[in-house]
Design a protein around this nucleic acid. Sequence first.
DNA 1: GTCCCACCTCAACCCAGGTTGAGGTCAAGG
DNA 2: CCTTGACCTCAACCTGGGTTGAGGTGGGAC
Lengths: 154, 154
Amino acid sequence: MSSADESLAIGEVARRAGMTVSRIRFYEQTGLLAEPERQSGKRCYRSEVLTQLAIIDAAQRVGFSLDEIRDLVWGRGDPAHERLRQLAIRKLPEIDELIERATAVRHLLAVCSTCRCARIEECRLLTEPAGPSRDQPAEAALKRRITGDASTRT
Amino acid sequence: MSSADESLAIGEVARRAGMTVSRIRFYEQTGLLAEPERQSGKRCYRSEVLTQLAIIDAAQRVGFSLDEIRDLVWGRGDPAHERLRQLAIRKLPEIDELIERATAVRHLLAVCSTCRCARIEECRLLTEPAGPSRDQPAEAALKRRITGDASTRT
DNA sequence: GTCCCACCTCAACCCAGGTTGAGGTCAAGG
DNA sequence: CCTTGACCTCAACCTGGGTTGAGGTGGGAC
């Protein structure tokens, strides 16, 4: 723990990263993770791999595909910060949208779990009144957010 | 648009919901979407389906599986708001974590795209200095957030 | 009437992201 | 020496979430 440079066996890496061994080997196979050194055939990792795995994991969870991550970490060509900037430009809006949607769904769950709707789509927060009463500004906004404006457009 | 109760053909629904026709049929097949009425064999939807589809879509994008969504929308048993509350209790922490991670990744992308690191895992915001200089509180927090504390634990 | 288009069913296929299993190697400990 | 456990490879398999294609029906416009 203090001397972080003693090399780690794959099992140890897996344990610390919270992943299976097979998953780590899979990442190596598919070029996401560099081939580590070996000692008598066995992979020995240095502790940096934990950071790499954590990045992979976090990126995946917010919707990057393994291809994108591979490109991010290992991309050929250009200086890395350049590719990174490109990727950032492409992905930032998506991430923002994800955050917005997540916030809306969060809100929906929180609010609906206090209402007595019989089915979720009948929840007063989401159903178009179809009659004259229009929904409140805030609710309309929530709805627009969760629906991504799709059903709001003509 | 004003008389929202004229029934919609599947193609129209798909267009408005921004999904493929096959995807909508697939949702019906797998019990996510109710079987609509038919007229001479063809599905005719009412406009509510757009809201349902939007909910499904939004929920999916923030990490609900179709099984969970099915259970949410169509779950057998208990009053809906009860199931909804259960689901909310289970999922709210996950959604919160998603939002946190997304925010951290967002931050990472934004910051790293302005730095000159040669490889992402060498980015000064993420690499353990391994020397004496410890990273700043804010950066450490970012790192801890993106790594989900995994590599931070002993 | 016949053309065309949007719809229908059903089964097969596809891709991402891993997991599983068979069969083998190596080093340490009893 | 021999067993045990962690590691190795390679190929096959699995699940989720759809897509694709063949073969068929219906109805409105020309």
